[in-house]
Nucleic acid binder design. Structure first.
Lengths: 363, 363
DNA sequence: CTGTTAGCGCCTTCAG
DNA sequence: CTGAAGGCGCTAACAG
């Protein structure tokens, strides 16, 4: 059993070379002879020296080799949600080949004073902040770190680098499909528009001030289209739910359709909501689309499988774009003396999937 | 605009207190007066000091606040595979409330010399190694780091902390169900048993030496049960495929059933394989289970949905157990002078789901 | 409750 | 191609 070298310095001492030389053996192979390098690496292996300590290295180089993703929801929810799993897959893809890993940072809604400790303490080179409300404390904490930050989806009104879709424009084809089929009495179902819980009807006038920009954009986009078709947006019933599990969505459909039995169509801002409508319709004996037209948003696999008329957004591509953008910002920071002044902003395309849940109204 | 304090020391200097005091304001609130603490925190906020630098802190405390997960496959595959997504969800759950994040470390099969750099450079407190072949280079690299390592699923024959199921025992109820229904001519379909690609028939005698312990265990468990029922394991046809996508699985079913048309049942070591059999049976006009009985393994959602007779394993619980076990090892390392000598080993329970794809053979 | 003293292990000049 | 020196920013231990 050979003595154990636990640091670069001790290994250097044992071999009778300088620390630099050992360091170079790992990091700058062209700075020493191949023979010496081999000898050093072999000696290291023999003594169980695992190579330069990553922490010390990071401290010195100011580079970690990890990018953080802030997922606001309880982290294990993120793995149950198809969209965020796809997003993570995209980020993983973006880092493939890079010398960076992805660090998942749970940033739950628990408003402990130190809710931001995880992001404050995370050992990463930058953050991707995935879909949080404007004014989110974790986002603020990430910015406070003075590291590159890329925002994904929301908030959409900051000066930070951004990757997302144009929700307001993206939903219009769905609204248009309903209008073109001849619908005039259309209700809207949306997931929460604000961080604060508020289930039930929301006046159209309140939508503008909502702090969850994604849902706000979708509702506004639909209203834009309705308005353009001569429908008074103030007369469009809008129902929201804070949680988007199946029972909530069905209940939202019930609330909307029992209070407004004259509706011939429901536009939903998420596929989950649309499923709620489909389920409620089935439970109450209505046929879709003969008795009721429905549109969704997101284009999750199950929606396409079920033939839902919906808007497909590229979740994986978003993840990849966000990952790459952050990586570029990190690299630029090392290279440039002065960071470039234009903030990257990438808007990805969406597509409307016609599906089979829109048809002309019965009467 | 106030001067910017970029380090703890500079902030301390500007405030005329010692660095310790500032450090304590962040880390040991009970070591100074609330008033002073407030004053320090306020001054920090005013100057944009983001708090103690995480890298320097980690370097000093030898603690990062992140645990690494090694997923051998190309990382974005991991997000397409239900089992590994559930596993990650479990890990996320285990770290919830802990001051640890999860770092995903892609450890693709690219056997570059430095394939292990990511794991060699990862700034983490320990590793969970998820389902790799025995002798995997990334596992070796993780061990070389002298950090706590927890193995999940495989390899199962090391002295490392382990979380998994007893694959060999777990599959026996599926085999037994087929035997009890009266089947005697049963084929086996398995995903790759070795890292090296080898599609097609595998002699039962070769299974023992397979380096992918999970699949090996399942095949051996089935053979155990067959043997106990008086069937010569040497006569049981075993077909493998390296890749488990749908076409491969269907093709495996074709290969098995065309060469052995007398089989009345197929035992599969994964649900994906069983789907391949179901699809092939449907395509060739056989009814399951009337004409052919089929069992799977894993218990993915879709399998249960489809009524497959299969073994359900608790993927999320595995992730949670692995995460917690690693966390404990990390904490113990800080506390204990001498690490405890018994290596934790946790075997989780599986359940056989009867489903509806097993019935007595026709003749 | 506050301050002083020592490094943590490495990489990067810069000089041979 | 190699070596010596300095410091990255912080916290643990101890002493006031």
């Amino acid at each position: 059993m050979v003595k154990r070298a636990r640091t670069l310095a001790s290994l250097a001492a044992e071999l009778g070379v300088s620390r630099t030389t050992v360091s170079n053996a790992y990091n700058q192979p062209d700075q020493l002879s191949a023979a010496l390098r081999e000898k050093i690496l072999a000696a290291a292996a023999a003594r169980g020296y695992p190579g330069p300590d990553p922490m010390a290295r990071s401290m010195r180089t100011r580079r970690v080799g990890a990018i953080g993703v802030l997922l606001t929801e309880h982290l294990s929810y993120a793995f149950e949600d198809v969209a965020s799993v796809d997003f993570l897959a995209g980020m993983a893809e973006a880092t493939y080949g890079t010398d960076s890993a992805v660090t998942l940072i749970p940033a739950g809604p628990d408003a402990r004073d130190d809710a931001s400790t995880l992001v404050g303490r995370a050992v990463v080179d930058g953050f991707v902040v995935y879909s949080v409300a404007s004014g989110d404390a974790h986002l603020a904490a990430a910015q406070a770190r003075h590291l590159p930050v890329v925002l994904c989806d929301q908030p959409s009104d900051t000066d930070l680098p951004f990757v997302g879709i144009d929700d307001r424009a993206a939903i219009r084809p769905a609204a248009r499909a309903l209008l073109e089929a001849g619908h005039r009495r259309i209700g809207i179902l949306s997931i929460r528009l604000t961080r604060l819980r508020r289930d039930g009807f929301v006046p159209a006038a309140d939508v503008d001030g909502a702090d969850l920009h994604v849902q706000r954009g979708r509702v506004l986009g639909a209203l834009d289209e309705f308005t353009a078709a001569g429908i008074d947006p103030g007369q469009v019933p809008i129902v929201t739910r804070h949680i988007n599990d199946q029972p909530s969505c069905v209940d939202a459909a019930r609330e909307l359709l029992t209070t407004h039995p004259d509706l011939t169509a429901v536009l939903c801002t998420t596929d989950s909501m649309a499923f709620g409508v489909l389920d409620y319709a089935a439970a109450t004996g209505r046929t879709v689309p003969a008795d009721l037209s429905v549109t969704g948003f997101d284009g999750v696999r199950y929606a396409l499988h079920r033939g839902l008329s919906t808007v497909i957004q590229p979740n994986k591509a978003k993840g990849a774009a966000a990952g790459r953008m952050l990586q570029e910002l990190i690299d630029a920071r090392v290279t440039d003396t002065e960071p470039s002044l234009d903030v990257p902003r990438r808007i990805l395309r969406t597509t409307y999937h016609a599906g089979s849940t829109v048809a002309p109204p019965r009467n």
